[in-house]
Design a protein around this nucleic acid. Structure first.
Lengths: 216, 216
DNA sequence: AGGATATGAGTGGCCAGACCACTTTCAAAA
DNA sequence: TTTTGAAAGTGGTCTGGCCACTCATATCCT
């Protein structure tokens, strides 16, 4: 029968409880002693289940206060994924390529979405470009956010770190031109041109990094 | 200093131990009592760490035998996370979209690579299509593998599970036509047509699943 | 001698009870 | 009214114990 692995049952029970009691992210769930009592299990067994859920980022515990439903949803999800995915043999090239893949897809998604293409964001972005302290990363992150795919954003964020923060530094005067071109293309929903420009910028950046001897 | 969260240290220590001792998947790791002794922690605390690792699919425990390094990761991980994390529709949509994103990119990469487009794989794939027991998933996985990006492959594999194994089942006679079209387009390196066909197939599949009432 | 059986050591699964460290609360003291 | 401090509640950890299971070994019966 369903022998052994009681802590897995507890994981399921906790999930059901959260559903039924309509506990929202950020809410506090009953204390360990209380849960152990109602579920008729020892506290240490219950803790095994809670610790598992915590490592997954599903709950959050604060000593002296209690246990709370985590509100970061797929925040930790991606972190967990990264420990699986990026633990070995990831050639730098794969990381680079995959990151670019997400960026291109983001631009494509923005261009497809009429509303996104015509937002005021672009104006303000263009203005901020003139600022000497405008970070390259801010530019790309803005694109990722505006794509609307939060999961892709999280994955991108991780990949960016694994590829040694390729967008480190501020936008130089040489780059402003091509970045303006990219923005213009997006505004008129010309995905091909925008992507082409972006890829060109990305490659230029990569060579620049190599020339300056930046490493991962 | 490093207060609280001792079990996290243990997780790290165990991982390091596995690395140093060169323990391979399937190998047995020391017993709980032994580990607790050498790490100078209580057995229950150690167990919290082990249970966490087990839920992640990194280890496997068999009562009466011992604890072993798991070779097939993410098993319960996906199960648990998909029920906890992916509650809202936005997340489901994001997962679906991101998976498709990787698939499309794979096709594009294959088409760009002249050598890959002209491999014999396509012939054998076309033959296997005729087989009644040919799994949809095999088809897509083949594409992902041939793209050459192993990182993307891994991410895809996880996302596939999170979106409820969208390619479950065998290829039906209705689908063979469009799949052959996709293969043909790839062979002549016509990325646009291949992708267009693939997306159409993917959407058709999604509707089919909804009609049959498949869930998570 | 050979096969079936009992035994004991080792292992994970689970529990009860005990401290400790920390946070919050609220009543008593200033 | 403000400050203080004691108590209650919570997670963090350890100890020691018992149970259920596996496996290798020794033992017994044929």
């Amino acid at each position: 029968m369903n022998q052994s692995k009681r802590y897995l049952d507890i994981v399921r029970d906790i999930r059901d409880m959260i559903r039924q009691e309509k506990i929202k992210p950020g809410d506090r769930i009953p204390s360990e002693r209380e849960l152990a009592e109602t579920m008729q299990v020892g506290r240490s067994t219950l803790r095994e289940a809670l610790r598992s859920l915590e490592l997954l980022g599903l709950i959050e515990t604060r000593r002296g206060e209690g246990t709370f439903l985590s509100d970061h949803r797929n925040q930790k999800l991606v972190e967990v994924l990264s420990t699986f995915v990026l633990q070995d043999n990831q050639s730098h090239e794969d990381v680079w390529e995959t990151r670019l893949l997400h960026e291109v897809a983001a631009i494509q998604a923005i261009c497809r979405n009429e509303a996104a293409s015509q937002m005021k964001v672009w104006e303000s972005l263009r203005l901020r470009l003139e600022d000497e302290s405008f970070l390259r990363e801010d530019f790309v992150r803005e694109l990722m956010v505006l794509s609307g795919n939060r999961l892709s954003l999280k994955i991108w964020f991780l990949l960016k770190q694994y590829s040694g923060n390729p967008y480190d530094g501020t936008v130089s005067s040489e780059e402003i031109g091509s970045m303006n071109d990219i923005l213009a293309a997006i505004e008129r929903q010309d995905a091909d041109t925008a992507i082409h420009g972006f890829k060109a910028w990305s490659e230029w950046l990569q060579k620049e990094r190599i020339r300056n001897g930046n490493d991962s």
